[in-house]
């Protein structure tokens, strides 16, 4: 297993949000997590990435055989975890490309690899920017500075294609994208699929899943996974909403 989440309980500001969540992700798998607003999807993503402000009160998370919860956020990233934020922050003054090169080199050092030089990196960045249909002026701006909602999401995937994580958790990366942007984002994700890398995609819409075929679809409600199925579950959810499941799971 690449990721094993077992009976995870987490609170935010003392309020229980995740209440016994379990999830196993194998190499090369694509998992979709759907669920009503406020059910804890972003909380799960943040707890996996190590955000302060959430307290894990019970349960374990093992990532590539190691205790994920014992690691700092940067260690998790260097171990190959990537979080695509639902709301990426704007960081004026920190250059997008500068950040990415520093991030990639931190990862390479962690793995005992040599650092990438500026020239090699620019070649890589240009190639990925083309894939994500991002102009060069995009890359040289401050992180997400002045980006539209859709541009921010594309930038998240751009970063992911450069960092090449073992596991990407993408939190509503498809929200607010038009059909063309959605295709670009799906292209970016699919370009990384190699039978080893895995994806956990939080989404409200099954339309993303017609571009990125999931192996499993989970429904998160009330802080737990209440149903797991295949692609057809996403279609059911789209047709019937969540109420029947939430009611059935009591």
């Amino acid at each position: 297993m690449l990721l094993e989440v077992d009976n995870l309980h987490a609170t935010a500001a003392g309020t229980p949000i995740l209440k016994g969540l379990s999830l196993r992700v194998g190499p090369g798998e694509v998992h979709a997590i759907m669920g009503p607003n406020g059910s804890g999807k972003s909380t799960l993503a943040h707890v996996l990435a190590g955000r302060e402000g959430f307290e894990v009160t019970a349960g374990t998370v093992v990532f590539r055989g190691k205790d994920l919860l014992a690691m700092s956020p940067e260690e998790r990233a260097r171990e190959g975890l990537f979080l695509g934020f639902q709301y990426p922050v704007e960081i004026p003054g920190v250059n997008n490309i500068y950040l990415l090169r520093a991030a990639l080199n931190a990862r390479r050092r962690h793995r005992g690899e040599t650092e990438i030089d500026a020239l090699q990196f620019m070649r890589l960045a240009r190639e990925k920017a083309r894939l994500m249909q991002m102009g060069e002026q995009f890359m040289s701006r401050g992180v997400n500075e002045g980006f539209s909602g859709g541009e921010k999401k594309r930038n998240e995937i751009f970063q992911m294609t450069i960092l090449e994580p073992a596991l990407a958790v993408l939190d509503e990366t498809d929200s607010g994208l038009d059909i063309d942007a959605l295709k670009v984002v799906a292209n970016g994700v699919n370009s990384l699929r190699d039978g080893q890398r895995s994806f956990v995609m939080v989404t409200h819409y099954q339309r993303l899943l017609s571009h990125i075929e999931p192996d499993f679809v989970h429904v998160l409600a009330g802080g737990r996974i209440v149903r797991t199925g295949d692609r057809s579950l996403a279609l059911d959810l789209e047709a019937r909403g969540y109420d029947w499941l939430v009611a059935a799971s009591g």
Binding site: R51, E74, F82, V89, G93, L99, A103, V143
Partner: peptide, 27 residues
């Protein structure tokens, strides 16, 4: 939130803070 964003990309905590301070000054 900015510190966490940078750390989530693999930047160490101290380095993330230095980046943000330099960014503030860069204005």
């Amino acid at each position: 939130a900015s510190i966490f964003y940078l750390r989530s990309r693999g930047i160490g905590a101290d380095e993330a803070r230095r980046m943000l301070i330099a960014a503030f000054a860069r204005e």
